[in-house]
């Protein structure tokens, strides 16, 4: 049974430009997204900033009304049966906002427990259980305004699980959290599907998606460009290879020349302090290292290496091609 279904979902935003001469603009944030999530599955939605991930999630959790298309949770339409859906979903947004700052974690949880109709007799035990789960036990009486980002994020997770929802939406839950905190959060996320929940997760971190998700959809410019298991997505680029070149002060025209080489599928440049890392994905059976280096004439070059593609390479190739 499909727990979450999106069928040709579209969402357009209206905005204006100018101060005196105002002009209305329509921005298509989501352009026909379709996917489904089975019961107990951890489904990942990956995409760059502005790809439409949060808009898609907000339509599914009833916060935005789709411009067209249908979204269903547990078989119920998210627009027509919004309240029914709200009772059965939990959601967690990344970032350090979305909590009542002047109140303690305990008060925040008590308030949302009432808003979500958690039985008064069960509230205390449920809150204790969740504080234990997210590692905030002993700190629950402190005001949220004094919490670190990681603590806030963990409190968000506790808030999203208060009513023990069968479906959980997590929008970049580990963003900005330190590595140790992020690892703990990932363990918590993994435990959700272990307890039978269905999870939709968005993240920028490929290793996170690779480690956690049963299936992944890559979204770019408001459309899904690929969908499958992490292994299937990797297989799409596994027949090629990746050349990495450390460069110092590479210019865009040199990168463009590399991009135009026959057999080059995608080129990205990552800044690494004073140097950059040029990552070139190439087609199978071609040895392009010399050709790539010849296009970087005049650029100081450091280490050059070749490796097998990863899920991140698959993601970059898909998003660049979109």
């Amino acid at each position: 049974m499909n727990v979450v279904e999106a069928v040709d979902l579209r969402r357009t935003y209206k905005t204006t430009t100018g101060t005196i001469r105002r002009r209305s603009l329509e921005v298509e944030a989501v352009r026909g997204v379709s996917f489904s999530i089975a019961e107990g599955e951890l489904f990942g939605l990956l995409g760059p900033n502005g790809a439409g991930k949060t808009t898609t999630i907000k339509m599914l959790i009833t916060l935005l009304i789709p411009t067209s298309g249908v979204a269903r949770v547990l078989g119920h339409d998210v627009v027509k049966d919004a309240r029914w859906v709200r009772e059965r979903i939990g959601y967690v947004f990344g970032g350090d906002r979305g909590l009542y700052e002047r109140l303690s974690a305990l008060d925040n949880l008590r308030y949302f427990a009432e808003l979500y109709g958690v039985e008064p007799k069960r509230q205390r035990a449920r809150i204790d259980e969740l504080l234990e789960l997210v590692g905030l036990k002993g700190r629950e009486k402190e005001r949220v305004e004094g919490y670190s980002r990681g603590m806030r994020q963990r409190l968000h997770i506790a808030r999203g699980l208060l009513h023990d929802p069968p479906v959980v939406f997590l929008d970049e839950p580990t963003i900005g959290v330190d590595p140790v905190g992020a690892r703990e959060l990932r363990a918590t996320i993994a435990s959700l599907t272990a307890s039978g929940k269905t999870v939709l997760l968005t993240t920028h971190y490929m290793f996170e998606a690779d480690a956690l998700c049963d299936r992944i959809a890559v979204i770019a410019n408001g459309v899904i460009v690929a969908q499958g298991t992490p292994q299937e997505l990797k297989a799409g680029v596994v027949d090629g290879s990746v050349v990495e070149v450390e460069v110092f002060g590479v210019e865009e025209r040199s990168v463009e020349r590399v991009r135009e080489l026959t057999g080059v599928r995608a080129v990205t440049v990552e800044d690494r302090e004073q140097k950059q890392l040029l990552i070139v994905q190439t087609a199978p059976g071609l040895e392009l290292t010399h050709a790539i280096l010849s296009q970087l004439d005049g650029v100081s070059i450091g280490r050059v290496s070749s490796r097998e593609p990863t899920l991140e390479d698959a993601y970059v190739a898909l998003v660049t091609a979109a």
Partner: peptide
Amino acid sequence: QTLEFAIAAP
């Protein structure tokens, strides 16, 4: 940014 959370509650 608590408005969305309060509105999306049942």
